[in-house]
């Protein structure tokens, strides 16, 4: 496996703040790799380290095997799609896309022809003469993509590129981006705080928290086998049972995660692990309803029940006493308490 980007014990400190704290990471060539985390978790700083806008305080960063420390952005074979698109407002869309070739001294006719091709690729063939201000958010996003790809980078960095788009457009762009990455065969490194986006597009996802990586895994592994409480909660929205509670139920004093859809209500006595509780609140989410249930020790668990099922299902009212149950194999043991 050839590596596109390799972090070895990289740190980036701003005075006392450790934006990135001893991160090691290997991203394979041709991979769709996502960096997922809440804001301030260090994911964007990692992206900026790869782009060269930031320099690591410690550690070694290699891009395609070459040490990148001290190499300015304009000498790196990576390009970036910025969160705010960063289109040059004083240039036409065509000149924006052709910019990367222009600064390399490519002849005008050649570079404009290439820019036309790139615009056609992102389905904006007739928009070349417009100024960026005359485009919609989704169109600007495509122009930013075309501009970043015209230099044929081996690694494309995307910094929350769909953050400003509405849900429908975002979903359409997700599948387009995924298809584009397959077609080009280059490495995409995608920063997002939206776990749905990361899970649906990526080959692998790194989950960031407080400047560190909690887990790097395939989307399915992350969702079904979270290793830490943070990943269980942030990626799967799972319930985290503290070690003490798990011990009273199973005898094993270790924190574990249970996803809301794997818990069900027992109307009568039944088999499996059981926990008495009281329904505090019910939120309607369309496909499912989420029940918030308080159990022993004030711990709150979320229970997801599908709506519109034809089979009659026990649906408690707010305030009613319930018994929760789940299959023992639904419990995922967590290595550390986050």
């Amino acid at each position: 496996m050839t590596l596109a980007v390799e972090f070895s014990q990289i740190s980036r400190h701003y005075d006392a703040v450790r934006a990135v704290d001893n991160v090691s990471l290997a991203i394979a060539d041709g991979e769709f790799f996502s960096m997922l985390g809440p804001s301030g978790s260090g994911k964007t700083t990692c992206l900026r380290l790869i782009a060269g806008f930031e320099q690591p305080s410690a550690g070694s960063l290699r891009i395609h095997g070459q040490e990148a420390a001290g190499v300015p952005p304009y000498l790196r074979d990576v390009n970036t799609v910025f969160q705010d698109y960063a289109l040059f407002p004083h240039m036409s869309v065509l000149d924006n896309v052709a910019y990367g070739l222009m600064v390399k001294g490519v002849a005008k006719s050649t570079r404009l022809a290439r820019a036309e091709q790139m615009l056609a690729m992102v389905k904006l063939a007739d928009y070349g003469m417009r100024k960026p201000a005359a485009l919609s958010g989704g169109q600007r996003q495509r122009v930013a993509l075309a501009r970043a790809l015209i230099n044929q980078p081996r690694v494309l960095l995307l910094d929350e590129p769909l953050g400003a788009l509405d849900l429908k457009l975002r979903e359409a762009m997700q599948s387009e981006l995924k298809a584009l990455q397959k077609q080009l065969g280059i490495t995409f490194i995608y920063v997002t705080h939206d776990q749905g986006e990361a899970l649906s597009m990526s080959d692998r996802v790194a989950v960031f928290n407080k400047g560190r990586i909690e887990q790097v895994d395939s989307p399915q592994q992350l969702y079904t086998q979270p290793r830490t409480a943070f990943v269980a909660d942030f990626v799967g929205g799972a319930n985290v049972l503290p070690a003490a509670l798990a011990e009273t139920l199973t005898g094993r004093a270790q924190a574990c995660a249970i996803r809301p859809e794997q818990i069900y209500f027992l109307s009568e006595h039944g088999a499996g692990l059981q926990l008495p509780g009281q329904v505090l609140d019910i939120q309607y989410h369309g496909a499912v309803s989420r029940f918030e249930v308080e159990v022993a020790g004030g711990q709150r668990l979320a229970v997801a029940v599908p709506n519109g099922q034809t089979l009659a299902q026990y649906r408690p009212e707010p305030g009613s006493a319930v018994r929760l149950a789940w299959a023992p194999e639904a419990m995922v043991w967590l290595s550390e308490q986050g």
Partner: peptide, 10 residues
């Protein structure tokens, strides 16, 4: 970000 984009593009 415009200056960074310019530098990023070479």
């Amino acid at each position: 970000s415009l200056l960074q984009a310019s530098s990023d593009l070479g």
